[in-house]
């Protein structure tokens, strides 16, 4: 193979592209809920918190996704619990818990003599290092998240818009909130290896924010966000191959570019409507 298909000649690149496609789609569609519910800070927080799980799993020789998953889910549910029970505001409760968990990760690492090189890849992402086993975990978790989101589609939408009335009419809003946080944790874990802890929050926010500039209906926003997510992740990975740049950073930069382009398009459209 040559020309534009050159990157696909390598098996590790094929795996990377599949991972990018899944991660881009999943993050950007979950991102619709993140943006509408103003959970951007939670996304960032959970990603950082999962570092503790990765560090512990790494030192114990366990699967990273398992370690990150346990810590992220526990943190997600604790954030909700502390917020509701201790009457601490949501952003404060996130701020306390995620930095605490992130610090735990660094603490555990610092007491270990083992090399920290591998962990770097979780901070910044290493999509080219996705193994066949990693890919299976990514795909299975993504399908699980997609299934639960589809089954809770209406409760999620209703509680995103008007949790009080949704609750009064018989939808268990706090249950839906908790499920969403768990799904968000799983989404982040699926994405960690591809884009890394620092950058995953961007994929959860930027494509959906770009979509929100261009449409005022929910389903089109969800779909458009998914399209932007895929363009960013797959396009970004391709560009990173051509430009020999870091894949995670290239993916996020492309998403950022799409966001600003959307703002531009939206501004032009508004000017045409009201001259």
């Amino acid at each position: 193979m040559s020309g534009i298909l050159a990157p696909f000649a390598f098996e590790f690149m094929q795996r990377a592209f599949v991972a990018a496609l899944v991660v881009g789609l999943l993050c950007s569609m979950m991102g619709t809920y993140v943006v509408l519910r103003k959970l951007a800070f939670i996304g960032d927080g959970l990603a950082h918190a999962s570092f503790a799980g990765i560090a512990i799993a790494y030192l114990r020789g366990l699967n990273y996704a398992f370690g990150a998953g346990v810590v992220a889910v526990v943190t997600a549910l604790s954030i909700g619990f502390v917020h509701r029970r201790a009457k601490v505001s949501l952003d404060t409760s996130i701020g306390v818990l995620f930095t605490g968990a992130f610090a735990l990760g660094i603490f555990v690492m610092s007491r270990s003599a083992r090399s920290t090189v591998d962990l770097q890849s979780y901070l910044f992402g290493d999509i080219l290092g996705v193994s066949r086993g990693d890919l299976i975990v990514i795909v299975v978790l993504a399908l699980l998240v997609a299934f639960v989101v589809a089954s809770l589609y209406r409760p999620l939408l209703y509680t995103s818009f008007d949790p009080t009335v949704a609750q009064a009419s018989g939808i268990h809003a706090t249950f839906v909130d908790d499920v969403l946080l768990v799904l968000l944790s799983l989404t982040i874990i699926v994405s960690l290896q591809s884009v890394g802890i620092i950058l995953v929050a961007a994929l959860l926010v930027t494509p959906a924010a770009a979509a929100a500039q261009l449409t005022r209906r929910f389903v089109p926003m969800l779909l458009l966000s998914g399209v932007f997510g895929i363009i960013s992740s797959v396009g970004g990975l391709y560009l990173s191959y051509e430009l020999r740049s870091a894949s995670g950073a290239t993916i996020v930069l492309l998403a950022t570019l799409i966001f600003f382009a959307s703002i531009g398009v939206s501004a032009v459209r508004r000017r045409r409507v009201s001259p």
Partner: peptide, 13 residues
């Protein structure tokens, strides 16, 4: 992102 009909439809959810 919802129009009037979308909001009223939520009543059925």
């Amino acid at each position: 992102p919802a129009n009037v009909r979308d909001v009223v439809a939520m009543g059925r959810y």
